[in-house]
């Protein structure tokens, strides 16, 4: 018994080491949204191609979809764009754009060059809607349900892996809730 006690410090060390090692794989920048299961904030902002049209939250309701925060100055947005195009065009996912702190002509040129798979674009020049959504930067992608509640927030690029592991199963679940 006395002998075993000698190993207590080692045991404590091992436990701590295991705890800290276990957390190594985690992404320290992962931030869950504060808006999960809450209604998408209200907004009234112009559409990118129809500046006189005012888009509101109601325009997004009806079926579950994705709200993608993007900008032409955002390089990672260019990286995820082909995949977003694929899920919107081939899988028919309702994809909405939040054009974040971007000049309208630059955004239009960007879409001209890379294609526009979005149903519509909300123009958030000042980033004010971004703040209401808890956006830290582009790209970010929100999953919302048919009632307009935020159900998931993905920070960074949406790729095959994110789609297969998180977004697609979630969208399927949301469609069944409808």
């Amino acid at each position: 018994m006395q002998r075993l006690k000698l190993f207590l410090p080692l045991l404590i060390f091992a436990l701590l080491a295991a705890l800290l090692f276990g957390r190594l794989g985690e992404d320290p920048e992962y931030l869950p949204s504060a808006l999960i299961d809450k209604a998408m904030p209200e907004f009234a902002l112009p559409e990118l191609y129809e500046p006189t049209r005012i888009v509101t939250r109601d325009d997004l309701l009806g079926e579950p979809g994705l709200l993608n925060v993007w900008a032409s100055w955002c390089f990672a947005c260019r990286v995820e764009h082909p995949f977003l195009t694929k899920i919107a065009r081939e899988y028919g996912v309702p994809l909405y754009g939040l054009n974040y702190k971007n000049e309208t002509d630059e955004a239009q040129n960007w879409l001209q060059e890379f294609g526009n798979p979005y149903r519509l674009h909300i123009v958030d020049r000042s980033g004010r809607l971004g703040i209401d959504l808890g956006v830290a930067g582009a790209p970010e992608t929100f999953v919302f349900d048919h009632l307009g509640r935020i159900r998931h927030r993905h920070i960074g690029i949406v790729d095959e892996k994110v789609w297969a592991e998180t977004l697609e199963p979630l969208l399927q679940q949301l469609r069944s809730e409808q």
Binding site: L31, P32, S33, A34, L35, I131, D132, L133, G134, A136
Partner: peptide
């Protein structure tokens, strides 16, 4: 701030 960005 907290309602938008959480405890972070």
């Amino acid at each position: 701030m907290q309602s938008r960005y959480g405890n972070f």
